[in-house]
């Protein structure tokens, strides 16, 4: 029977990854549409500057909004790429290497993004 006869229990990781994709997909739909509406339709991109961001980030609401969107979108995307890699790269070494580099890049992006959102200090509004 070969490979077909040797099950590899995944302790449910694939199940939760599948579930996460669906839930985050639905949540992201609203978050991304809201983002699009505010940043591109209501406010012209030309008007978005440091002042605009500083004002938005003066309250925790938009920071939380952006942080949730960053985490969900990045993990959603990373998992999507993971699925493509697992689908198409079968040699063990190449698969491990490509997955490792994917995780490293995602981790760096997630860290940088989170730092930017969390540590940004809006200066006091001057005249």
């Amino acid at each position: 029977m070969g490979a077909a006869g040797s099950p590899r229990p995944e302790s449910g990781i694939e199940l939760w990854a599948w579930m996460f994709m669906r839930v985050s997909g639905v949540v992201l739909l609203f978050l991304a549409l809201g983002h699009l509406l505010i940043m591109h339709l209501i406010n012209n991109v030309d008007h978005i500057d440091f002042q605009f961001v500083a004002q938005r980030y003066a309250t925790p609401f938009w920071r939380t909004y952006d942080l949730v969107m960053l985490w969900l979108a990045l993990i959603h995307g990373t998992n999507g790429v993971r699925m493509v890699l697992v689908d198409y790269i079968s040699p063990r070494g190449w698969r491990a290497a490509s997955l490792a580099s994917l995780y490293v890049v995602s981790f760096i992006l997630l860290t940088l993004g989170s730092l930017a959102i969390l540590t940004f200090q809006p200066p006091l509004m001057g005249p």
Partner: peptide
């Protein structure tokens, strides 16, 4: 279910 709940089971269906 044990056989199907694997990366090569139902979860490879896209």
């Amino acid at each position: 279910i044990e056989l199907l709940n694997t990366v090569d089971g139902v979860w490879r269906c896209r």
